[in-house]
Design a protein around this nucleic acid. Structure first.
Length: 293
DNA sequence: CAGACGTGGCT
DNA sequence: TAGCCAAGTCT
């Protein structure tokens, strides 16, 4: 192993975070675990800037899991707005119901309990346990993966999927003290988001530039397996997005509107069916749909 | 494990 | 401008 001295890396990142952390609504001692949880679901594949206003409105309307659990799923989908991947709104609602049923309405602190909630995978469970409860967990998101790939492994980008070796590196670097580990987790994420960016890394402003393996190796370009982009134009996802926009913007909508929004009959019907099957829409009358009441 | 799943901003 | 990318999860 040719890893940098842990203490140097940790001190540099933690000191940098102390000075450069963004002030966000779900950070700080006043943020409730529910606020943290809501932010984490919203932040899955979605930029911070777009989450901030929706998160504020969401917490204002549903201050506790029980408040959300008591609301119709369609209202959650409408409040989700244009954050994307609206099934996350459904999952957050289902998670709120589960929290009421299984945890007396209190967001659980244990990783295993969190992982059992809808919409909460490995990353999100570790993030909530760490950020909301100060537990010690490896929080491996795309930012942390990129920071470790560069600083420790000397590669520009991590592999398409998390590898065993990658998790081992992250585990070895996790501070022993829970509170410090939790700060280390946010700090490495923040470094990846603000400095060690995917496209244009700001190495001139990086606190770990001196010990960065990627920099030491001369910034070799990514040479791993091809990272496939997601098709968009003409896909069911685009079609579903058009239909969901209709649903959000009115109490209900009819077939004529869907036809205007999407020309292809076969695909239009398939998407309508799948949205209903997903619980994102309900058919109120023949040829008329709405968000689920 | 590969593929589905929204949306919009930036280069 | 056409991609690429953003705090992933589920099947």
């Amino acid at each position: 192993m040719d890893t940098p001295a842990p203490s140097d890396l940790h001190d540099a990142v933690l000191d940098w975070y102390d000075d450069h952390a963004r002030v966000l609504p779900w950070r700080g001692p006043e943020a409730s675990p529910w606020s943290v949880m809501v932010s984490e679901l919203m932040l899955q594949q979605t930029p911070v800037a777009r989450v901030v206003p929706v998160h504020a409105a969401w917490l204002e309307r549903w201050p506790t899991p029980a408040d959300l659990a008591a609301a119709p799923t369609g209202e959650a989908v409408r409040m989700w707005g244009r954050l994307g991947y609206p099934r996350r709104a459904l999952r957050l609602h289902a998670a709120a119901v589960a929290i009421v049923e299984r945890h007396d309405g209190v967001v659980p602190a244990a990783y295993e309990d969190l992982l059992a909630l809808p919409g909460v995978g490995d990353y999100t469970a570790a993030a909530i346990a760490s950020f909301a409860f100060g537990r010690r967990h490896v929080v491996l998101d795309t930012n942390v993966r990129r920071v470790l790939a560069r600083a420790v492994s000397g590669t520009e980008l991590p592999a398409p999927a998390v590898t065993r070796a990658e998790r081992d590196v992250a585990t070895a670097l996790l501070p022993d003290d829970p509170a410090t580990a939790a700060t280390w987790a946010v700090a490495t994420m923040e470094l990846g988001a603000l400095v060690c960016a995917a496209r244009q890394p700001r190495c001139d402003a990086c606190p770990v530039a001196e010990v960065c393996a990627w920099r030491a190796a001369g910034f070799p370009a990514y040479d791993g397996p091809p990272r496939r982009g997601q098709a968009w134009a003409g896909t069911d996802r685009q079609c579903r997005g058009r239909i969901m926009a209709l649903a959000r913007d009115a109490a209900s909508f009819g077939l004529a509107q869907v036809e205007a929004a999407w020309p292809g009959t076969e695909q239009r019907e398939r998407c309508l069916d799948s949205l209903v099957a997903d619980g994102l829409l309900t058919q109120v009358t023949p040829g008329r749909w709405a968000l689920p009441g």
